[in-house]
Design a binder for these strands. Sequence first.
RNA 1: GCGCCUGUAGCUCAACUGGACAGAGCAACGGACUUCUAAUCCGUAGGUUUGGUGUUCGAGUCACCACAGGCGCGCCA
Length: 552
Amino acid sequence: MLRSIPAKIINECIQNARSEGLIPADVNLNFIIETPREEGFGDYSTNISFILAPHLKKKPVDIARQLVESMKGNPSCKSVSVAGPGFINFSLKDSLWQGMLHTIASEGVQSLYPDVGSSRNVLIEFVSANPTGPLHIGHGRGAAVGDVLANLLARTGHNVGREYYINDAGRQIRTLGRSTYLRLKELAGEMADYPQDLYQGDYVREIARKVIDGNIPVPAGEEEAVDFLADYASSIIMDGIKKDLGDFGVTFDRYFLESTLYESGVIDETLEILKERGIAYERDGALWFKTSLYEKDEDRVLIKSDGQKTYFTSDIAYHLDKYKRSFDVLVDIWGSDHHGYIPRLRASVQALGRNKEDLKFLLIQFVTLIKDGKPVGMSTRAGEFTTLREVMDEVGRDACRFFFLMRKSDAHLEFDLDLAKRTTNENPVYYVQYAHARIESIFRNARETRIDMEKLKDADCALLTVKEELDLIKWITRYNNVLEGSARNLEPHRVTFYLIELVGRFHSYYNKTRVLGNDVELVRARLLLLAVLRDVIKDALGLIGVSAPVKM
RNA sequence: GCGCCUGUAGCUCAACUGGACAGAGCAACGGACUUCUAAUCCGUAGGUUUGGUGUUCGAGUCACCACAGGCGCGCCA
């Protein structure tokens, strides 16, 4: 409904031009129709005359002038003009916009969801932090981006799976066990040397204390004790991570354990496939993967000369497993410090017979916390990182998520803790939420009047003739384009920016125009507009996982 | 040394995959509360898009070269 109207107008225009012999039949016209940045330029703009110019050997302006003649008679067009070096700007009749509002009101916000996925299955893997310590702020950003991307793809015609991968088979968990073991000895009064390469955070001590206070039976021998404590500590930490994520509004369909790859035999299957295809080869007593066959990267080791498989092997198997579970497209969300890992993994899915495009990456750049105008230090090794929990508790979940989504994910993020806490106009979170609360407030007042709020859908949208009202309708319909653009480019932050823009129009309108008044029919039409607007705001806030308060 | 990311108003960032005069917010300055919530609005000022070369009707966007910052380059995990 939305883009079909402008497309139809241009197509008719082309038809006319063809029948008049203005355009040769064999010319390929891949022009675009866009909504111009400048509102004064009209509802839509097309560059078609620039595309035609080289074929017709005429100036774009002249072509535009000819094309415009036939558009002028189009019943859908309110205005048409040639602008600048040859753009064709045109606007739709108000009645069409009013009609769209009516359609959205009766069909719901869902009618604005575009179908970009055509029911493809997409698996988004994110966070995937090993349970060796609490989630820090960087994980939080990844969690927010992953969660919102999943929501976004789900709204745009994809079947979405959310997964968290845990390297439980590796050495990190065992190191955690050793760390806990030594802290335990410390608490028992045996002053042991605590090496630098163990986990330094206080949480390890807390877990050790828990073992003592809870009278947890730890096996006697050192090896057995370390094994036991590795299990014990990691499961406590994992519970903490799940709690943090839950409170942050992030859930997963599955926590995938690396160890299950060994149990199910996918690891062996992967190695067999690679050997069969000659992509795995032996050298210096190790088994190598021929990365160079697909990407500009060096060959990598799959099995070390001591017989141990590398993490890379598990990762290939994991991705094979994902495809086997009939996911068509995989999205991996990683910290940007892992970007060097991309070529080999991309190469591996090609080795498995997949297209490059079936595996997409989203890199999450670091977060710098700002407090009192100065950056807060953050180093995992020293154990002085700032946790997601701390930030969430300090600024609140809504502000935290909103701030994470105000930047493109692969750009550095400066997170100003003081700003996020401030309840003033400097803080964009409240700007958006306030709009929602204001609309709800109008509705509360409207219910005091004789207007039947249940029957708003009968309202006469043709009464919405003020420029600001028509603009609001246009901005509402734009939700459709925003969802499409963010889904296609995997850029959830666009939704956040859209919200700020949309809501800005509303605040402006609110200050200028009084909604409730004596003209009942007009009031009803305006309330309908606001109801739809409210629904879009609420839907978009829900999409980014921020609450939509009815009162502030 | 090689590779990836980033460089846009004083600050933090946009710019719909190449479109029109590069836009917001904050900070600065000036205005609006007997009116549905002033957590709001209206206005003013602010720029050689780090620098250069090229591609074309047209470049913040694409290519190449500099410069600056961040990150990564193991039979580590």
